[in-house]
Amino acid sequence: MNSFVLAECTSVSAALSQLNNGAVVKASGVDLLDRMKNGIEEPPKLVNIRNISELRGIRETDQGLTIGPLTTLAEISGHPAIQSRYQILSDSCGHAATPHIRNMATIGGNLLQHVQCWYYRSEEFSCIRKGKEFCFAFGGLNQYHAIMDYGSCPSVAPSSAAVGLLALNASVELQSARRGKRTVGIKEFYVVPDANPTRFTVIEPDELMTAIVVPKPAPGTRSAYQKYGEKESFDWAIADAGVLLEMDGDICRRAVITMGAASPVVRRSAQAEAALTGKPVTEETARAAGRASVEGAQPLSMNAYKLDLFPVAVYRTVLLAAGKMGRDPSAAA
């Protein structure tokens, strides 16, 4: 790891004043230190926001949730109100990495983490995400890579929390010293590789994430998230699904289906949602939604198996959300 100046900040304004000349924000540092230890980033200055207490905490109102970006994944997944009214959020935060990492890692850091593509994470490969011309995954080892919407980089969305937050139609609040505050929806927050391969999100170098805002789901909403890996004790998702159903009796009035490990940014599947909307949730309609979730997918040389996985992840998570199936023993517990 390179040596750096650590700027300890006690307020948002103090932190914002430091975000210049290549300085980067450090919260818990889990992802940043990983990148620095791997030698793919060498920032001269870390702006330590870890101790800014105003950025931490969960507030529930009639409008929904406001979550401080320094709130840990463990705090979110273990929060009683979130467990009972925002299951998809507690599920998705509760399935990231390992228990100890969830104790450290913040929701802001989780949303801002860079892709986990092994070529990107290695200093030995100068890839398109690092400003070069080339992607190594297309012609290389791509078994864990994207099957849809990848454009010039088939890495997959790394944040499980984002899969939940996208389904909940959440947004993030960003603040800079010069331009003040702005609010960006989760979908707009992420940058697809073709738009700018060196950016993962729209956050500017001088901006700080100051809140995550989650609107309250409509009455009758049920939601769930499930993650599938090759193993269960710490693995990256090879398929995952977030499902949010607004039910009107037995009929699904509105469905939101989100996926993480299918594409470079978290995606909603309009096709899968259409397969459920206005219909009763049964194994048949759930499976139809699953099949629809991979319509148009273009697998790479080594990941066609994901065409089997996502339909199953979606249908089983739809049934879980609808209360018609238990948590899938084949998914991470």
Binding site: S3, E8, C9, A15, Q18
Partner: peptide, 18 residues
Amino acid sequence: FSSETEAKETGVREFGPG
């Protein structure tokens, strides 16, 4: 450190790289 005058004013204190 936040009790120190200057740090209180700016809310920032720098350490390192040494």
